[in-house]
């Protein structure tokens, strides 16, 4: 269960099952590893920082101008996501769900982080076509990551829908 609502101040209210909320706490570390050691996770790093130019000299220049800044921005988004999780709280006693209110200034970082995590997981799973969206195999050796990818996709879809509505 996930509910995402736009608030009058432009922020977002998210209500989700407590176990899904807890699962989110494990995410920042996975992305941080890639951002801090892109040489170790080359395939994911290549997906998070794709080429801008076919020409090697042009590409090197683009990397020089934009590369460091992109990593810094993604790390800042990760930090904002992580900090917001400190405000996750049970919705009601024994309700089994948690609530998180995002401030307007946190929303972009949140959406960016969720999408980066989807790219990370999807790349690690070796996804090469769109068939993953309509199937789930609980016996797959990486079923947990497929489940996480579906959950994050659902959350992202709801976030985009909420942000597309006026506050």
């Amino acid at each position: 269960m996930i509910q995402v609502e736009r608030r009058e101040d432009g922020g977002i209210r998210i209500v989700l099952r407590a176990d899904l909320a807890e699962a989110m706490r494990t995410l920042p570390e996975r992305l941080r590893e890639v951002l801090e050691r892109p040489d170790v996770s080359q395939r994911v790093a290549a997906r998070l920082f794709p080429k801008a130019h076919d020409d090697p000299a042009e590409e090197a220049e683009y990397r020089r101008l934009v590369g460091t800044d992109l990593i810094k921005k993604k790390l800042a988004g990760l930090g904002a996501f992580e900090a917001s999780l400190d405000r996750l709280k049970p919705r009601r006693w024994r309700s089994g769900s948690s609530e998180l209110i995002l401030r307007p200034d946190e929303v972009d970082a949140w959406l960016g982080f969720i999408n980066d995590m989807r790219l990370l997981i999807g790349t690690e799973l070796g996804i090469e076509d769109e068939t993953w969206q309509s199937k789930f195999d609980a016996r797959h050796p990486h079923a947990a990551d497929f489940a996480l990818l579906h959950f994050l996709s659902w959350l992202e879809q709801l976030l985009v829908e909420a942000l597309s509505r006026s506050p």
């Binding site: 801008a52 683009y62 993604k74 999408n115």
Partner: peptide, 18 residues
């Protein structure tokens, strides 16, 4: 164009310029 490609990469889209 460089600015837009950088922003698109920030959003996680595959973007190039030519």
């Amino acid at each position: 164009a460089e600015y837009y490609v950088g922003r698109l990469h920030g959003y996680g889209l595959q973007a190039t310029m030519e």
